[in-house]
């Protein structure tokens, strides 16, 4: 039920691996993690959502907040997601136009466009 978070560095990118459920209760933990990374100078983030079982609009709000923070430092926030039920939420809110969504972490850490 809980949210799991782990981070690692790949080149100039920081990969945040998220697992579990991102909802109104757990989203603040993800927000804290993203804020902490940006405050520590990590401006190129890859959020790996492959282990996410559930995502709601509170989670979307946190990701949008993270994107705004890294953009303030000319950074980037890329997502890794292949799960149709999660992708659908990005689509219906129009956020597929806002986030680069990749099919693998390898793809996300090497992407430059």
């Amino acid at each position: 039920m809980d949210l799991s978070l782990s981070t690692r560095t790949v080149g100039d990118r920081t990969v945040v691996e998220v697992g579990g459920e991102i909802d109104v209760y757990t989203a603040p933990k993800l927000r804290e993690q993203l804020v902490e990374l940006v405050n520590d100078g990590s401006y190129h983030l890859v959020v790996d959502m492959e282990g996410v079982d559930f995502l709601d609009s509170t989670g979307l709000g946190v990701l949008v907040g993270g994107l705004k923070r890294v953009r303030a430092h000319e950074g980037s926030l890329r997502l890794v997601c292949n799960q149709e039920r999660i992708l659908k939420i990005f689509r219906i809110t129009g956020l597929t136009k806002v986030f680069p969504i990749h099919t693998s972490v390898d793809d996300a850490v090497t992407a430059t466009d």
Binding site: S57, L60, G61, V64, G65
Partner: peptide, 19 residues
Amino acid sequence: ALSGDDAGAETDDEMGLAV
């Protein structure tokens, strides 16, 4: 949500209705 200063309660609310 993108034009606001931060992803606060109000944008979460609107995004929730959008979902």
